[in-house]
């Protein structure tokens, strides 16, 4: 177990190093480079001063080593835009994205697992076909368009749900208000993961239902409901945990679209704004932090898998 953890930690560090190096190279070698920010209305002297101030006059290798050294202390420098510290801005934004992502994951699990179970138990029935059709729609619908439709229906037409921000402006914080603001964005973000969860749950359960132990349970006279709930579904849920590892990066990526549309002040919205503003320190900081979040959650998923299934040993 200890050795496995160590191995995974080393692997994670390698991945992070590759990601940060690629990001750094991409930004540094870009046509125009970071200097592109300073072309507007500046004298040559001002430009030179700014270049020196931002450290852009030093060789690439020096800049890279400096960047890695400070990144290890979670210091990604200052934003080109408003000159705030990148890590401060990220610290503000990250919890909001985690809240949205967590809510979407909860929706996916609460809806996806029962839907997958129904689909598997009543294989080839009308309800199976309906579930399958909707999971195809879910995979194929552009998230931003789905969001526009939901806003049109629930905000514009029925005036039921807020379509922007995390809270009603001017109203003191309340849990109910926050949850109300979460419904639409979480629903849209959940479409990134829900269909895969349904498909995976369905095939995992179909496989379990075909196993010998299910036949044995039926042969000893156990009612079908108990055969499913005590035996088949429990075992089918174990591999479903692994699919979460694939879904988490998708959830985080989906946040880019969802947060932008719903004005949710998280990492995704920040990434879009920094991309448009070519705010390189911010873009690099976001990419690295997002990679860390994904790697850590994947590690947790792996550990949960081992804990749920005693047959798995880490060797």
């Amino acid at each position: 177990m200890g050795r496995y953890l160590l191995e995974r930690a080393v692997q994670a560090c390698v991945v992070l190093l590759v990601v940060s190096t690629l990001t750094f190279l991409m930004v540094s070698l870009a046509p125009g480079g970071p200097e592109i920010m300073m072309t507007m209305e500046s004298t040559p002297e001002q430009r030179e001063a700014l270049t020196r101030q931002l450290g852009l006059d030093q060789p690439l290798v020096v800049r890279y080593v400096k960047w890695v050294a400070s990144a290890l202390r979670a210091d990604f420098g200052r934003s080109f835009g408003d000159r705030r510290k990148v890590n401060e801005v990220i610290r503000e934004r990250l919890p909001n994205t985690l809240l949205l992502g967590g809510a979407a994951l909860a929706v996916s699990i609460l809806v996806g697992i029962p839907a997958g179970i129904i689909s598997a138990v009543r294989r080839y029935s009308a309800s199976d076909h309906v579930v399958t059709f909707f999971s195809f729609i879910g995979v194929s619908i552009p998230a931003f368009w789905f969001a526009i439709l939901l806003i049109l229906v629930f905000t514009v037409h029925f005036k039921l749900l807020p379509a922007s921000g995390m809270a009603t402006p001017g109203v003191p914080f309340s849990l109910g208000n926050r949850l109300l603001h979460l419904i639409l964005p979480a629903t849209v973000l959940a479409t990134a993961t829900l269909p895969n969860l349904v498909r995976f749950m369905r095939s995992a359960l179909i496989e379990e239902i075909g196993q010998d132990y299910v036949r044995t349970a039926r042969a000893k006279g156990l009612p079908n409901r108990l055969v499913l709930s005590r035996h088949a579904i429990r075992n089918a849920l174990i591999p479903v945990v692994t699919v979460l590892g694939v879904l988490i990066p998708r959830l985080v990526g989906g946040a880019v679209i969802t947060e932008t549309i719903f004005g949710w002040p998280g990492m995704g919205q920040l990434a879009v704004a920094s991309t448009i503003g070519r705010d390189f320190p911010m873009v690099m900081g976001i990419t690295v932090v997002v990679a860390v979040v994904v790697i850590v959650s994947n590690l947790l998923v792996d550990l949960a898998y081992g804990w749920l299934d005693p047959r798995i040993t880490y060797g």
């Binding site: 985080v252 879009v272 990419t287």
Partner: peptide, 15 residues
């Protein structure tokens, strides 16, 4: 696979 694709795409488009 572990990277959120859209963030990578945004970083590349920024550059």
């Amino acid at each position: 696979m572990a990277l959120p694709t859209l963030f990578v795409i945004l970083a590349a488009l920024a550059v």
